[in-house]
């Protein structure tokens, strides 16, 4: 599966390079908005698969200057667990921070993430490091950009080792005349969590909606 993803990113980068030859990038960009995710979370625990729906909300902060950038996203929400717990309610919290290096059209991102959950089964959390590529392609002068982001998730600190992948695609509309932006997309992340003898694969797919203030020059 890693090989297929590698091929996917390589092909993606080639296509992006071919269609972004004349991209004009702002030198400075600041973005602050609210983010809402409508998520479906699947997990396998002790051979029992569970699927839960939930929604999260939070803030999305981005700052970019020339070839460098910084992004933070933090949000949390509630999931109804339809798995073994039988419809119990669980809380989830997400936090991601990323450094961006390179032009907007193809930038390397390195970051750190935290995930935490609590339910009737107890509370748990894990962290991970992340590395990948982020690309934003402006579609002419419409103010609309197609954004691709994919990365590897590798274990970080803590007892639980989290490995996996993430993939996010979206359209961002940022009109030039108004300092606002709106985003619509889809985010998919997959983890394999190992803690001692305990192993739990899980995946989360989210429809992403966000919007807010955007300043650029």
């Amino acid at each position: 599966m890693k090989l297929r993803l590698t091929h996917l990113f390589a092909g993606l980068a080639t296509c992006l390079a071919s269609v972004t030859a004349q991209a004009q990038e702002p030198k400075f960009e600041f973005r602050l908005g609210g983010v809402s995710q409508l998520s479906v979370r699947n997990a396998l625990l002790a051979s029992d698969a569970s699927s839960s729906n939930g929604s999260t909300g939070g803030v999305d902060l981005g700052l970019r200057w020339k070839q460098f950038g910084f992004a933070v996203r933090a949000h949390g929400g509630t999931f109804d667990d339809s798995g073994p717990a039988g419809g119990s309610i669980g809380d989830l919290a997400f936090a991601d921070a990323m450094l961006l290096m390179g032009p907007r059209v193809t930038a390397l991102h390195l970051g750190y993430g935290l995930r935490g959950s609590s339910s009737v089964l107890g509370a748990s959390s894990f962290s991970f490091a992340r590395a990948g590529l982020t690309s934003a392609i402006e579609i002419g002068g419409t103010g609309i950009s197609a954004v691709f982001s994919g990365g590897l998730l590798v274990p970080s600190f803590g007892e639980t080792e989290a490995t996996g992948f993430e993939l996010e695609t979206s359209l961002i509309w940022a009109p030039r005349r108004f300092p606002v932006f709106a985003q619509f997309g889809y985010r998919h992340e997959q983890f394999n969590l190992v803690s001692g003898d305990f192993e739990r694969p899980e995946e989360t797919g989210s429809v992403v909606l966000s919007g807010g203030l955007r300043l650029s020059r």
Binding site: M1, N42, L44, A49, G150, L167, Y186, P201, E202
Partner: peptide, 11 residues
């Protein structure tokens, strides 16, 4: 990508 990135065959 959503279909390709699955957690495990069991899941």
């Amino acid at each position: 990508g959503t279909s390709a990135i699955r957690a495990s065959s069991d899941l």
